[in-house]
Computed example of a mutant assay.
Amino acid sequence: ELHESGASLLWKISNEEQSLRQKAISLESSIRRVRSSINSLISKKLLDPEFARKLEEDLQRASSILTDGEAAAFLPAEAQGRFLRMFLGPINVKASRKEVQLKVKEEYNSYRDRTAFLFLLFPLTLLILKSWIWEGCLPAFPVQLYEAWLLFLYTGLAMRENILRANGSDIRPWWIYHHYCAMLMALVSLTWEIKRQPNCAQKQRGVELFLQWAMMQGVAMLLQNRYQRQRLYTRIALGKANRMDVVWGETSGVDGQLWVLCPILFAMQGFEAYVGLLLLKTAFVGVVTEWQVICCGILLVLMAVGNFINTIQTLMTKSRFKAKMKRSKSKPELD
């Protein structure tokens, strides 16, 4: 009797879930159709732009409620990338309950907080020990230990970010690809022989610059975690961001924060490219001829260029959004 009752309950729950799933999919499809119709009418100049803007705001609000509420669990899960399938297999990582999704996000934020301090302290400690104890020459084991930690760090970030995207977060693909490149660079660096005497300072110049760049990135991560997350919570409260959105890159900052963060980010990207070019130079002039040097140099330049382009695109998007908001505010004043 208990077995039959349990089976009946599961069958009933399954049917109800299927019904809710169909309703959620139908509503999502309706929102897309209405948005497409609005865009078509605007292009044909058959709809007042101001009225269209209000409709778009209502649609955006409805879409946010659908994708950010409990109904999001009944929407079709996005296809998982190869990275997750490679590590976890063909399993669905989308949480069925919103509180579980938010728990994943909070764990990701905690992971970033913990690793940001280590990102700053680890290379700083190595450089201090290099000057005070190791007589200006880094031993191989501590550097390789740091590179192994970087591999663990970037793998963990990429794993968490892929899971967040599967649960509705807005992380841009480039930041995940950036972590893929960083993972590859850390893996290659583990096979890189750290040479000492003679000419230790010249041979380890690239390693020293990389550690200095890592310290700069640690500072940038701390600033992002501290200031931008507060702004993101405000945007979520105003309905301008999804509850699953996270801080990434330089977005979500207000004007004052961007004035602080952008110079640091651009300086860090320029320094990253400089370190990459320096590694390539040392390989081509014959100072250090290992293939790992060339590979790490190319990856650093690639990441620097990608970060710079993505930062510019984000700033342009924010600029267009602010201009649009100013125009919408000025219209009622003129009326």
Rank of each mutant, 00 (worst) to 15 (best):
P198F: 08
I298G: 01
G218R: 08
I42P: 02
K326N: 08
T115Y: 08
F74M: 11
K329L: 13
Q257R: 04
L232W: 03
L315C: 08
L41N: 03
L261N: 07
K195F: 05
R53A: 06
E17H: 10
M215D: 00
L258E: 07
E50T: 10
Y108H: 15
T191G: 13
I128E: 02
R160D: 03
F122D: 04
R97A: 12
Q202C: 00
S40V: 02
K54N: 11
W248E: 07
L10C: 08
F271G: 02
R85K: 15
V34C: 06
S14A: 14
A283T: 03
Q60M: 04
S252L: 06
V207L: 12
S252M: 07
L118N: 03
A323E: 11
L232T: 05
L47S: 01
S328Q: 14
L102H: 05
Q212R: 09
A140D: 14
H178W: 13
Q101P: 00
K23I: 13
K45R: 15
M86C: 12
G89S: 07
Y274C: 03
K98R: 14
L2M: 10
I176C: 01
R231M: 09
A24C: 15
F51Q: 12
Q224K: 03
A201P: 00
N167V: 07
S40I: 04
I31W: 11
F308I: 05
L126C: 09
R112H: 12
L120M: 14
E57N: 09
V287T: 15
I128N: 04
P173V: 06
Y233G: 00
L222Y: 04
T67C: 13
T115M: 08
A77C: 11
T155H: 06
L47M: 11
G276N: 07
A182S: 14
L258H: 08
V247T: 13
G276Q: 07
L9Y: 12
G218D: 04
D245S: 15
L258I: 04
K329G: 00
T125D: 01
G239K: 10
L59P: 03
M244A: 09
L41H: 05
M183A: 04
L151M: 09
L190N: 06
A304Y: 13
V219F: 13
A304C: 06
V288F: 06
N242M: 13
Q22S: 14
Q18M: 10
E208W: 01
G156I: 04
L88V: 02
E1T: 09
R32T: 10
G253E: 06
G286M: 06
E106P: 07
L300H: 14
L151S: 09
M185W: 05
W174A: 02
Y233V: 09
I309D: 10
G168I: 12
F117D: 05
R327K: 15
A241P: 04
Q80K: 08
I309R: 03
I163W: 01
V93F: 05
T234H: 13
A304Q: 07
R327P: 00
L265K: 10
C200M: 05
L9V: 04
L300P: 01
L127E: 03
S37H: 03
R205M: 08
V246Q: 06
G69F: 12
